[in-house]
């Protein structure tokens, strides 16, 4: 769309202002408010998850008692649920492509699939949490427990919110309240969903795959 040619943030020239050309009066940046807001929110979320992941990373191998990641993680299991979440990104983007084509049946299909995959992931996480707790790892147990549960829990809450949004979209679409003109709603929620997915990509690597340094006892405690 020619009308959305983006003026540079800092070096736009007045002549480029669409309104003066009698062109579509888009926003100054050419991006809608909602999308810009979502992206700035995602930028903010980078710092949020960055802090959580960093906390986990910092405390790797510093727990003074077990269990440790090594003897509790079930990598094949987590790999599958990671894969499920990764594929939900695909279904999400297919949903967006569908509404962009005006294919509302496929939109609902893919949105439902995305929500379903997300639910499978959350179900997997619930199962994982329960089994960890059975194996004696809670938030209170050690640093590993604290940082693991808080990090993955935060992510899980984000996924859950995403599922709620997706289901709302399905419902709206089914009631005919999601016309093609509102394609952007799908896009914005898609952005959120993909973000949650990329965060998990990082978590999967940093938390699950990269092993903790050995030894949770190298650090003598001088507390008397």
């Amino acid at each position: 769309m020619a009308t959305t040619t983006t003026p540079e943030v800092l070096d736009e020239s007045p002549g480029e202002n669409p309104a003066e050309h009698g062109m579509s009066p888009v926003t100054n940046t050419g991006v809608s408010n909602e999308k810009l807001a979502m992206w700035s929110f995602l930028g903010s979320e980078c710092l949020l998850f960055g802090a959580l992941i960093s906390t986990y990373f910092l405390y790797r191998g510093r727990s003074l008692t077990g269990p440790t990641p090594k003897n509790i993680y079930d990598i094949p299991y987590t790999s599958i649920s990671s894969f499920v979440l990764l594929m939900s990104s695909l279904t999400m983007v297919l949903a967006l492509a569908a509404i962009q084509r005006g294919d509302h049946r496929r939109l609902r299909l893919w949105l439902t699939a995305t929500a379903l995959l997300g639910t499978v992931f959350i179900g997997g996480q619930v199962y994982e949490f329960t089994s960890f707790i059975h194996e004696g790892l809670t938030m209170r147990t050690n640093l590993f427990g604290s940082s693991f549960f808080v990090l993955t829990g935060f992510h899980g809450v984000h996924v859950t919110l995403g599922i709620m949004m997706l289901l709302s979209l399905v419902l709206m679409s089914a009631r005919g309240r999601l016309p093609q003109s509102k394609v952007q709603v799908v896009e914005i929620i898609g952005l959120y969903w993909h973000f949650v997915d990329v965060v998990w990509i990082v978590i999967f690597t940093v938390v699950y795959l990269i092993p903790s340094p050995v030894a949770h006892s190298t650090r003598p405690l001088q507390i008397r």
Partner: peptide, 26 residues
């Protein structure tokens, strides 16, 4: 073109220009 189940709602949400450009995009 996109209404499926009949436009029971007037879909009164007025789009902003951003949306307007999306409309055109659509």
């Amino acid at each position: 073109a996109t209404t499926l189940t009949g436009s029971d709602t007037p879909a009164p949400v007025p789009a902003d220009p951003g949306e307007r450009h999306l409309v055109e995009e659509a």
